[in-house]
Nucleic acid binder design. Structure first.
Lengths: 386, 386
DNA sequence: ACCTGACATGACAACGTTGTCACACGACAG
DNA sequence: CTGTCGTGTGACAACGTTGTCATGTCAGGT
């Protein structure tokens, strides 16, 4: 990681005497002394002094605008004395480069910013994804604008518009919309875009997803192999692609195991509380044969299931496998068996794809699919109890 | 939440016939038809068509640049026919407003972006904080640039420089540096800045922090009140303000309880693994009288402690109180007793302060201190065992 | 002395937008 | 018919920067 950002200049000097002998007529009032090491210096909470521009630096150091530009951008072909003079003025005026003006004029047109629209930045999946994307971006000297969509399609559309208006260099999208035709003009205009966790619909673009179908079949097969027949599936909103796929995997595997008659789904569960309520209702005593195992299609649905089983005293009697790993799942009692998606891998794959596109890769869209792995921790290995 | 972003225009129309009768000479090649609802349309992965500008829209609709600007900004004083004509051209050309050029020229100088430099976006504390900040920001039609500092001072300085160069409207900082004099020029220039979780040093600025001293004293008092005397404290890097304060609170409370001789600290623990190792070493059998309780100064140190106690079979024999709540702490066995910081409240308080400053509030810096609350869940209420 | 080339520097236009001001037009009062 | 006003529209400069090209200076070769 390279610590210096673009277009900046060394720190203050010991002697801050008058600048070079050139007769530049600079009427700037900004003081030049640096703060002493004493108690907290006040920020002078009053009128805001306008920021110094290259013009100010040029006037103070007695050179032309263009020369200041050269110094600030570390271009070659400036004599050491002039460079020194300009850098002094930069430090004295606290000049800070204006990247927006710079990018406007520059030919490359890069803004050094990418946007990431995720489901909810505060949940561990989105947060970890964002973090590994950030790490890739930092290496490319790029900042990340992050927002949560909360499964609201209109918000997605409004935010994409905002990001395009900001001329981001690229876009990472975990879509909340069912179809993304609205993105066509941007894709046509060459906006590098990578879908994550959910495939694009109605448009063609790069994507990094998990094999939800195979993963959920694997999870269900695991339960079946431990002797379970009455397995209930908990799922999120069916309109969410991944949620529906995981339920589909559950059904397919049940069919394949000859358990088609036992299929029992509770879908459209939005919150841990909803999952908890559903499980409580399912395992209420006296309602005939109860399920002996649960497949939870999302991490916080698994958490809700654990809460319910805990309350019912069934944590060690009902098997449970979740989709999505999360911190501390191993510390529960019993440890929670999950299908883990390697979030770090997903995030860095997204970053690699995105920056390859930004760097001009024009190959046809790629679909990266990552296989989730089963992490047995105890809860998924409980044998059936009637 | 208002769904529409600034400066945009209605969607496409049914009939896309030729534009108004004006004889504008527009030589733009962008096709106008919208995608059909069939299978995924390709993004035409080839040469990138340059984005249409207001000039293009003006040419196509046969009006002046300024009139397009008026329409796009929804200014009054444009005849309905002209407005309609311009909007048609905007839709036809997929025109997207360039906020950078706009802000450059505009007097207000706002960029509609704030920066948030936090410890680590993937940890639950930073992530939740970011999320609640984002919610406030969205109401203000502002985007958030987020980065992780990982306690690296140079990264903080480089990223702040980058954010200033981007002319963010405000800055939220969980500093990794020991002192922040480097921020003085920005503060003097009126950059709204709110420190979070840690107080500013060497500069004066708004802050939202938790009362770490009182909180850790509370935690230790809780253990003492349950009969513990040999209480060990686990702490993060002493150079981190909050870590040192929590250790200090531990020492103060131990002194106050007449347990000065029992003070036992393990500081500078950076990771859960380090905490786990420290606890394992402390509770190794045969090393004389062992502590009967643990105070963990940060959430993942508590997690490490739980791992160690679990491995040693001591989870129900050694008391444990953590600082910082986290998801699932209630589902452990026993539930983890913690001092909870209300992260949502911290985040929205930070947002309120920040946007008040952005809106021109010039009052002296405010220091908001939030009291953490004790959440007893079992682990902190275990009586001493020899 | 003259020409050549390398080097340092600056003048100017341009990026895409908006603030300011001026103009053209029709309506209306005198 | 003239003068005044209100309304819609456009010309132009400006925001802060960089790409292009021209100019000035000086060293070295003939």
């Amino acid at each position: 990681m390279s610590p210096s950002e673009m277009g900046e200049v060394p720190a203050s000097h010991g002697s801050s005497g008058p600048l070079g002998s050139s007769g530049a007529s600079a009427s700037l009032g900004a003081a030049g002394c640096s703060a002493s090491a004493g108690s907290a210096a006040s920020a002078g909470a009053g009128h805001h002094v306008a920021r110094a521009t290259m013009k100010d630096v040029a006037a103070l150091s007695g050179v032309s605008l263009k020369t200041v530009s050269r110094v600030v951008n570390r271009e070659a072909g400036v004599s050491p004395e002039v460079r020194e003079r300009v850098e002094r003025a930069v430090a004295r005026l606290d000049y800070s480069h204006n990247v927006h003006a710079s990018n406007l004029r520059r030919s490359s047109g890069r803004t050094g910013t990418v946007g990431a629209l995720l489901q909810d930045i505060s949940n561990s999946f989105s947060a970890s994804l964002l973090r590994s994307l950030e790490d890739v971006a930092r290496d490319q000297r790029t900042a990340v604008l992050a927002s949560s969509l909360d499964e609201e399609p209109e918000r997605e559309i409004a935010l994409v518009r905002g990001l395009v208006a900001r001329r981001v260099d690229g876009l990472v999208l975990m879509p909340a919309t069912a179809r993304q035709e609205y993105l066509l003009p941007e894709l046509r205009a060459g906006l590098p875009t990578v879908f994550v966790d959910r495939l694009p619909r109605g448009v063609d673009a790069d994507s990094v997803t998990v094999d939800n179908l195979a993963g959920s079949r694997h999870a269900v097969r695991h339960l079946v192999s431990h002797g379970h027949r009455r397995i209930v599936a908990l799922g999120d909103l069916r309109t969410i692609q991944t949620a529906e796929l995981r339920l589909q995997g559950y059904r397919e595997e049940m069919q394949a195991a000859g358990l088609g008659d036992e299929i029992l789904e509770r879908a459209d569960l939005r919150t841990p509380e909803a999952a908890e309520a559903a499980v409580r209702q399912l395992f209420r005593t006296g309602t005939g044969p109860r399920p002996t195992a649960i497949f939870a299609g999302r991490n916080d649905l698994a958490v809700g299931a654990v809460r319910a089983l805990r309350a019912l005293g069934l944590v060690h009697r009902v098997a449970l496998v979740g989709f999505d790993d999360f911190p501390l799942a191993d510390l529960l009692d019993p440890g929670l068996t999950v299908m883990r998606q390697n979030v770090g891998q997903i995030g860095s794959e997204v970053g690699r794809l995105l920056f390859a596109r930004i760097d001009g890769d024009a190959a046809p869209p790629r679909r990266v699919v990552i296989e989730p792995t089963l992490i047995p921790r105890g809860s998924g290995e409980i044998p059936p109890h009637e």
